[in-house]
């Protein structure tokens, strides 16, 4: 996906990806990414937690406006353990 992201950014569209595999993202160097330490296949959180899903989306999009250097990876302050236990039910 990072190669798609790099190609898209070169065409002039600002991009951000949500990754759960930080090391792969470091290696592939997309223009911008946010990292969440969630289980594969659960990038936006857990089933039924719409607020967390929206929070992840908005946090990723904030980086589009705020990133100052290409390749920035922002670590988001959420854990899989707390997400699974039902935390993060309010948008933050």
């Amino acid at each position: 996906m990072a190669l798609v992201q790099r190609a898209l950014e070169r065409l002039g569209t600002p991009t951000v990806s949500v990754t759960v595999a930080r090391d792969i993202t470091v290696a592939c160097r997309p223009p911008r990414a946010v990292f969440v330490p969630f289980m594969m296949g659960h990038h936006f959180g857990v089933p039924g937690n719409a607020e967390l899903q929206k929070t992840i989306i908005l946090a990723a999009l904030r980086l589009v406006a705020e990133a100052r250097r290409s390749g920035e990876i922002r670590d988001l302050p959420y854990t899989w353990n707390l997400a699974r236990r039902g935390a993060y039910t309010g948008e933050s």
């Binding site: 996906m1 990072a2 798609v4 992201q5 190609a7 898209l8 070169r10 065409l11 002039g12 569209t13 600002p14 991009t15 951000v16 990806s17 949500v18 990754t19 595999a21 792969i24 993202t25 997309p30 990038h43 936006f44 989306i57 990723a60 999009l61 589009v64």
Partner: peptide, 16 residues
């Protein structure tokens, strides 16, 4: 990337 760009987005969100 060209197909996405043709949709004329202002921003793209990607989930690998």
């Amino acid at each position: 990337a060209a197909a996405v760009h043709a949709q004329e987005p202002d921003v793209a969100l990607l989930a690998p």
